[in-house]
Computed example of a mutant assay.
Amino acid sequence: MSRYRGPRLKISRRLGELPGLTRKQSKKTYPAGEHGQQVRKPSEYALRLEEKQKIRYNYGLSERQLLKNIKLAKKVQGSTGVILLQILEMRLDNTIFRLGLAPTIPSARQLVNHKHILVNNQTVSICSYQCKPGDIITIKDKKSSNLIVKKHLESPGLANLPNHLEINKDNLTAKVNGIIDRNWVGIKLNELLVVEYYSRK
């Protein structure tokens, strides 16, 4: 099952800041659980697993979806880790989150599933839809859709808009200008460890 329904703060305490999963911040600096305060040097496997889990929880993917994206990234020429991040960042649910139209990726996924989003004047209800340069993203011309998005725009999840996206907040229209650059990825992680994790399986 792809959607995580458990406590999100517990995950962000264990893995670090995950802007796509939750906006809540814990005052506790150590991981959740009875062994959270014990300081132990993590093994190489543990480090790779942690980076993989960061990607999974931040983008809201199942193990199967992530493995599928890894295989896709390996077929493309270039750095597999960077291409994987570009594939995940160009997903429709993540693009809506990065535009500030939703506070988190699960919230953006709900907007897509409930058919509030149009891509090139066509209703798209598939969260994993890959946005391409030149795509125009608009909000359905319904009062309820506009109210939800305007409320989210008042307090966006991430402050900085990536350089490959542009948005007109007056008429709620956004455009994808290109493929995201690695420097603009919203999550701090070492993508090479994720590739290594799957290459050893």
Score class of each variant (00 low, 15 high):
R3L: 13
R3S: 13
Y4W: 02
R5S: 03
R5A: 01
G6H: 02
R8Y: 01
R8H: 09
R8L: 01
L9T: 11
K10W: 05
K10I: 13
K10R: 15
S12C: 08
G16E: 09
E17G: 13
E17Q: 14
L18A: 08
G20S: 07
G20V: 01
G20F: 07
G20A: 09
G20D: 07
T22W: 04
S26I: 10
T29Y: 06
T29V: 13
Y30K: 13
P31I: 05
E34A: 11
H35C: 04
H35S: 11
H35D: 12
Q38K: 15
V39I: 13
R40N: 12
P42H: 10
Y45A: 10
E51C: 00
E51Y: 02
K52Y: 01
Q53H: 06
I55F: 03
R56S: 02
R56D: 00
N58P: 02
Y59H: 10
L61S: 00
L61R: 01
L61A: 04
L66R: 00
L66Q: 10
L67W: 13
K68H: 12
N69F: 12
I70F: 09
K74G: 00
Q77K: 15
G78L: 06
G78A: 12
G81T: 07
V82L: 04
I83K: 08
L84V: 06
L85P: 01
L85E: 09
Q86C: 00
I87M: 01
L88T: 00
E89R: 08
E89K: 06
E89N: 08
M90D: 07
L92I: 00
D93S: 02
N94H: 05
T95Q: 04
I96F: 03
F97N: 10
R98M: 13
R98A: 11
R98N: 11
L99N: 06
L101D: 03
L101T: 00
A102W: 01
P106Q: 05
S107A: 15
A108Y: 05
A108P: 10
R109D: 05
R109C: 09
Q110W: 09
Q110M: 12
V112S: 07
V112I: 15
N113Y: 07
H114Q: 15
H114W: 05
H116Y: 13
H116I: 04
I117A: 05
L118Y: 10
N121A: 11
T123G: 03
C127F: 01
S128F: 07
Q130S: 15
C131G: 05
P133N: 06
G134N: 04
I137K: 07
I139S: 06
D141A: 15
K143W: 05
N146T: 10
L147A: 15
L147V: 14
L147E: 15
V149A: 02
V149P: 02
K151D: 12
E154D: 10
S155H: 15
G157I: 03
G157Y: 03
L158G: 06
L158K: 12
A159T: 13
N160W: 03
N160P: 00
H164T: 04
L165A: 08
I167N: 13
I167Y: 08
K169T: 15
D170F: 08
D170S: 14
L172Q: 06
L172T: 09
L172N: 08
T173M: 11
T173V: 11
A174W: 02
N177K: 14
I179C: 00
R182N: 08
V185K: 07
V185N: 09
K188V: 11
L189W: 00
E196H: 10
Y197W: 12
K201V: 04
K201Q: 13
